[in-house]
Design a protein around this nucleic acid. Structure first.
Lengths: 301, 301
DNA sequence: TACAAATGTGAGACAAATTCATAATTCTAA
DNA sequence: TTAGAATTATGAATTTGTCTCACATTTGTA
């Protein structure tokens, strides 16, 4: 059966208008065209859709069944078009975020929570799983925004700066390093270093401190959760380097010491990478604005 | 936006097959045709439905929205076709009944109840309102079956005999006519006659007794409900003539007397009129079978 | 970089839907 | 009952749109 939307519209129009001729007007076509169409449809369906004994054409049982379908389906088409309009105007869309920095969960959640309230129609998600190759995923539209601290010049991609942070040393108060004011590469030589389970070029300790100084720590341990890292550090099972915003709560805790890395001041900048086309979408701009201001507020308390 | 079912099928196939070329196979068309179609669809929608940066073509956000629609709508089309097949094979359908004889409610309800259980898919209804012109309504497919006791030879219409019945006189036990064994036309001259509110040619008392004898009763009263007629008769406010099956309960009631009409035995036959095309439909045949046997059983108790 | 795999494009063939003109019904009211 | 109005049906010509074929272009991969 070769059904088309045209046929559903026809059925509905004939029912509404109470006849074929009037329906033709509704649909902006000639009465003849409708007559042909109805005939063709009935031939296809192999069943009479109309009662022809009476003069203003009337729906048969089968026709009524089809009318029901039409009345269920046609509004859905209109809804689709509305959705597309909303998509085009940027009122709605998708914001799937990939994070390269594991610790970003901490400020991202509150930001997303705020965002969700302002843009309930936007489909938000965080994809931690494919943290490895986030930028290609962004290009393929598998995600829509990547949080990264390594801006790359790629055509079609924009890196919007968010905020700066300091990678900070954190250790147990009973650790000998607690005596120092600034921690340098050499200090790690005798330490067990705890990091997130990602490659070295994604870890500030290595890119900013250890790799340039060609220093290798005594041992390495990879742990997924920030809370667990802090627990291990607290019981002096190792030391770690974490962004300052993560250490907000730890600073006022006597079990821990936090120290800047040295010798010079080390500062890093986070970026939100988006596709060029998306960058000007209203909801995207709003998200970036929130991601700029909210984490700073959080850090202040 | 000029959406067609074809497009929904395409979207679904491309998603399933994970690419345009494979989808073309699924749909039995060339890859080229699909490419043209997708381009046309995107032009119409004014929005990208696919991500083209990656090579096996992939759905975009808008495309996913459309996929959802496709997955909701396409099964409904299949369901429609199934329904049409069932309609054609007569498993389902409509059985709207018009009754010319008012008292037929009494046996029709139990029959319909039985029928409904056997053919739950058939849409049943009784139309009492248009009792006047039932046969034309049957021709126009406004109803599908007419209960009548006046068979007429009309092309395209079949009168299936159901069962015979006797119109019976019913009066109060305190009515003088209770003394007679058989009631004849003359006996009505002094009586208030209670009938259903329909024309005389649809009432057995008139067609079979009074009109041939040119007798007019003392008075006439039209009442809609059988129970009310019996109530009035019971309190001797009038007499009536009803089919024997209606008087089943009354016979054993000392307040009433029931008598045959005379002088000869008067017998009438009920028919179920259907359109020729419908007569052989399984559910129709079944209904007629029930309407033949069940009322007889009911009458026996 | 070269080769394979996938998608895009243009022209012509073909099918299907529409229109125009007109015929054939059915309805309605005198 | 019948004329005239209203409604639907039909045939031929035209238009519209979709498909295929052949080839170009792009993207992925070893």
């Amino acid at each position: 059966m070769h059904l088309e939307f045209r046929h559903l519209r026809t059925i509905r129009a004939i029912h509404q208008a109470g006849g074929l001729a009037r329906a033709a007007d509704l649909l902006n076509m000639t009465q003849s065209a409708l007559s042909h169409q109805v005939k063709g449809l009935e031939d296809q369906a192999g069943i009479e859709l109309f009662v022809r004994r009476s003069k203003p054409l009337k729906l048969s049982v089968a026709g009524l069944r089809m009318l029901k379908l039409a009345e269920r389906i046609l509004p859905e088409i209109d809804a689709l078009e509305d959705d597309f309009k909303a998509l085009k105007s940027g009122k709605t869309g998708r914001l799937h975020i990939a994070i390269e920095c594991h610790a970003c969960f901490d400020w991202l959640f509150p930001v997303l929570e705020l965002f969700r309230r302002a843009w309930p129609e936007v489909d938000v998600d965080i994809r931690a799983g494919l943290a490895f190759e986030a930028l290609p995923a962004l290009m393929r539209e598998e995600v829509d925004l990547v949080i990264s601290s390594d801006p790359v010049k790629v055509a079609g991609m924009i890196f919007n700066p968010l905020f700066d942070y300091h990678p900070m040393f954190v250790g147990s108060a009973s650790n000998p390093l607690a005596a120092k004011d600034v921690i340098v590469a050499e200090d790690f030589r005798d330490q067990m270093l705890i990091t997130y389970p990602v490659s070295r070029d994604k870890l500030d300790v290595f890119t900013e401190v250890l790799t340039p100084a060609k220093v290798e720590p005594r041992g390495l341990r990879q742990v997924e959760l920030t809370a667990v890292i802090l627990m291990l550090v607290g019981s002096n099972r190792g030391v770690s380097v974490l962004p300052d915003w993560v250490l907000r709560d730890v600073r006022s805790n006597a079990d821990y010491v936090t120290r800047p890395l040295g010798p010079g001041v080390i500062m890093r900048r986070l970026y939100a990478a988006t596709r060029e086309e998306d960058a000007m979408k209203p909801f995207m701009a709003h998200f970036i604005k929130l991601a700029r201001s909210e984490p700073v507020k959080l850090q202040r308390g």
